[in-house]
């Protein structure tokens, strides 16, 4: 049985759903970040699957490079924000952060 586009898209869909589940169900801000990373990876996997099977060619890989780059920027900024929240509220749980001022 040969591997087709649909196999990769299925893996991407599963990863996307798991990332979404992590984002919805987790309290810890860092776990939410991990969910976002899973979602971005699912999207990268889809882009590269289309770059091989969908005739997208090298363009798909370039889009993935930019996605990875944005993921890096996002992770750096988000962790800085999480550290700030921890300094102000002494917790990294999103549901306990419920006021704009401390």
């Amino acid at each position: 049985m040969e591997i087709t586009l649909y196999h990769y898209l299925t893996v991407g869909a599963i990863l996307f759903s798991l990332g979404l589940y992590a984002m919805i169900s987790r309290k810890n801000a860092i776990m939410i970040l991990m969910g976002i990373e899973l979602i971005l990876n699912a999207c990268n996997l889809n882009f590269i699957a289309f770059s091989k099977y969908g005739g997208l060619g090298v363009d798909g890989q370039l889009i993935s490079i930019f996605v990875i780059l944005l993921a890096v920027a996002e992770a750096a900024i988000a962790l800085a924000i999480v550290l700030n929240i921890y300094n102000n509220f002494n917790t990294a749980n999103i549901d306990e952060v419920d006021s704009m001022k401390d």
Binding site: A13, S17, L18, I24, R26, K27
Partner: peptide, 21 residues
């Protein structure tokens, strides 16, 4: 870390997954 509202989250994500597939 604790989990918040497993079951609605699981239902929602399963729904999204089924739609995606």
């Amino acid at each position: 870390t604790n989990n918040l509202s497993y079951i609605p989250a699981a239902f929602f994500t399963t729904g999204i997954f089924v739609i995606l597939i």
